[in-house]
């Protein structure tokens, strides 16, 4: 018994240290929006795919693809995702025949043919999702100088992998999709009151302290106001609104529904192996826990008669 208590205490100490190390080095939370308080609350969506056992909802991924295809794809590329991925396990799981049809809607340059000429052919499952612009410069030129980022990894390259999410069973990855969701629903037609109030207050305080204080104001310029974009000024105009798409499965296409669907689709696009990863992970951890139990018994058996 003495041994056991000792082992447990030393293990507890060990894990405490590991956790302390990990927590102190956790990457800082991605600043959602600016530092100004009083805006709408950042919503943490209850994703079906979050947590240790979470899986994607196929219908939602298919709807998400529809939103991506009909709205996002007119400006954003997705060069790491291939049409064939859309029929692979753990994704939207369109049928192979459906994917052929989806791919054939777009063309791609191929060649050279026997005469040395490049030619256009329809896309096949092996090809990537289409890019709306020939290159980055063309994309910038068509978007007022701002480059619409490639969306293949957007769900992993935005947002944070927070310690809290890790223990809330949120997979530690939900920061990105939560950010995308909030961004999509976070547009305002006009600069909201909490921003103007903040600047008014700042100017008032500044003038009190120093009569030569130069007033500052929030200038939106050509940008669009978004509650959750760092700095609030977003080049992308509000891309989604109620009924921006018409879902073929009859789901009502509210703004929130579309934002959730497309965020989920982007999560899948960034991490297409998530489902298999988790399902294998559960088995691996169970195996290791049993092995650890056996090893503990072996170790105890061997040290049984040794005081140490």
């Amino acid at each position: 018994m003495h041994n056991l208590t000792k082992n447990i205490t030393s293990l507890a100490k060990k894990s405490a240290l590991v956790l302390a190390l990990a927590s102190s080095f956790a990457t800082p939370a991605f600043a959602a929006g600016g530092a100004i308080s009083g805006g709408p609350e950042f919503k943490h969506v209850d994703w079906s795919w979050a947590g240790v056992f979470g899986t994607f909802d196929r219908a939602q991924l298919q709807r998400g693809y529809q939103v991506y295809k009909e709205v996002c794809a007119s400006c954003h590329a997705m060069e790491l995702v291939k049409f064939r991925n859309l029929s692979e396990a753990g994704g939207p799981e369109f049928s192979k025949a459906q994917v052929k049809v989806l791919a054939a809607e777009y063309e791609i340059e191929d060649g050279p043919d026997a005469e040395g000429e490049m030619f256009m052919r329809s896309r096949k499952p092996k090809d990537a999702l289409p890019s709306p612009f020939a290159n980055d410069n063309a994309a910038k030129a068509s978007n007022g100088g701002a480059l619409p980022p490639d969306l293949s990894l957007i769900a992993k390259s935005r947002g944070h992998f927070s310690f809290k999410d890790m223990f809330m069973g949120r997979d530690g990855l939900s920061g990105g999709p939560n950010y995308i969701y909030n961004l999509l629903v976070g547009y305002e037609d006009e600069v909201p009151e909490y921003i103007t109030k903040y600047y008014d207050h700042k100017n008032e305080e500044g003038l009190k302290a120093d009569p030569d204080y130069t007033e500052s104001h929030f200038e939106l310029g050509d940008s669009n106001f978004n509650n959750f974009f760092p700095g609030y000024k977003l080049a992308m105009a509000m891309p989604l609104d109620d009924d921006s798409v018409e879902y073929s499965d009859g789901t009502k296409a509210t703004l929130a529904q579309q934002a959730e669907d497309v965020s989920t689709f982007l999560m899948w696009a960034a991490e297409p192996k998530m489902e298999i990863r988790k399902s294998i992970g559960i088995r691996v951890l169970l195996f290791l826990i049993i092995l650890a139990g056996l090893m503990y018994a072996v170790k105890r058996r061997i040290w049984e008669n040794v005081r140490h």
């Binding site: 590991v18 990457t27 990894l153 890790m166 988790k278 290791l288 826990i289 092995l291």
Partner: peptide, 24 residues
């Protein structure tokens, strides 16, 4: 084996926790 449990917890359930989003 105990250490491997910690390692594989991160690998399977929180693989990007110790990385930085910008590297994507």
């Amino acid at each position: 084996v105990l250490f491997a449990i910690v390692l594989f917890y991160f690998v399977f359930f929180n693989p990007n926790f110790m990385g930085h989003p910008d590297n994507y």
